[in-house]
Design a protein around this nucleic acid. Structure first.
Lengths: 215, 215
DNA sequence: CGTCATTGACTGACCAGTCAATCTATGTCG
DNA sequence: CGACATAGATTGACTGGTCAGTCAATGACG
């Protein structure tokens, strides 16, 4: 029992150091960018020796890979779960938007790193993880496709394109927050979740506007 | 007259070298990424000596700055022009979407570089050019705001957020093409222009779907 | 004492930017 | 016309600094 506790303690302690480094890396990557920062910056931020980073990770790249995969897999799980449930498309899309916005609200640095250093980095990490990234797009595309088959969504708009537009709209809101171009109070986050879904599903046009255009 | 022609010839020739370097840089940046490429790669690609790059540009950064500003300013001009014209919002937004999609179709490498290396690079070039980038978002936001004031667009959706969602949707389509996740035939480009506007203005929901949701 | 965690000085490679030399085109003047 | 002058274009070897990754030594703990 005592040895078990101690064992757990030791393991936990080791795991904590690893996490300490990961969390420090998030802050450093967010502050300076992946390329602009040195591995020693991460070690310093974590309060550990330079070499320890290489005890837990094979390379600087692997640190970012780990951060990305950790978060993206949680999101994939959420999307898969939502996908399996019986609920209106609109609610499904709102659940996804909510998750992403909540992720940003909870850890803006991490989401900044993921967006800035991975999902758009077509020549480096983005390319490495393209299959994983794509999975999210495909799942969303599937949901939209289903809604189209059910007659709830227009069929003229290719589901894959619509999925990208939807995801892109969300990511750009985060980008707006990252660049401090959009207000980010609790109320703004809450409204943003609804706003993206309303824009993409219901459209920006008011009933009157739409009628005017069509009439 | 003769000396004038010769003068023009010389000037043009010098300008051509500069352009040669810029065009080569686009290809190299698109292929390898800004950070991963060396200045010598640009020189080699352009078929000029290493030092000549520094005759025309103060630094590697300045090459990318130049490429970005050249293109972004053309876009800003287009948006301003559209903004000043008397035409339906939908057509204005479609003009913008068309311009961006056409830009990609005409020079995918350049748009890849601008999106990947600048508009999302929150810690480097994106931050440098944030004021210029923002101008585009603001102009689009202004158009949406006007449409809301005229009762054509819903007023519940903050115009700045809507503008980001709209722009983000377009940029994500380009990202989809860049990562080769979306088909990119001439027909796909044509439909994409319409699709983004239809999604954002009219919404994905079919009349039947919307009625079902509301009823 | 054996195992794993931790340390940080060191190395080897890499590359942006410099610069002195060379070339080319044009202008000028005897 | 030809010799010389000037300025800008062009060249590429070189330098100085940076930094990812290594490793031998030390510490902690059972």
């Amino acid at each position: 029992m005592s040895s078990g506790r101690v064992e757990t303690q030791r393991t936990k302690s080791a795991a904590d150091k690893r996490r300490l480094i990961l969390d420090a890396a998030v802050r450093v990557f967010a502050r300076q960018g992946f390329h602009a920062c040195r591995v020693s910056d991460i070690a310093d931020e974590a309060g550990v020796a330079y070499g320890l980073v290489y005890h837990y990770f094979a390379s600087k790249d692997e640190v970012l890979d780990t951060l990305f995969l950790e978060r993206w897999n949680v999101m994939l799980e959420l999307i898969r779960q939502v996908d399996g449930e019986q609920m209106p498309v609109r609610d499904k899309l709102e659940a996804i938007a909510s998750f992403i916005v909540d992720s940003y609200q909870h850890d803006p640095d991490l989401m900044k790193v993921i967006i800035v250093e991975v999902t758009r980095a077509a020549n480096s990490f983005g390319n490495t993880h393209i299959a994983t990234i794509r999975e999210a797009y495909d799942l969303i595309g599937g949901m939209i496709s289903e809604a189209q088959a059910a007659g709830l969504f227009k069929s003229e708009i290719d589901a894959r394109f619509a999925a990208m537009a939807f995801y892109g709209a969300i990511e750009q809101l985060l980008t707006g927050w990252i660049f401090e171009l959009l207000p980010q109070g609790p109320e703004d986050f809450k409204r943003a979740k609804w706003l993206v879904v309303e824009t993409v599903c219901g459209g920006l046009e008011s009933r009157a506007g739409e009628q005017e255009r069509l009439g």
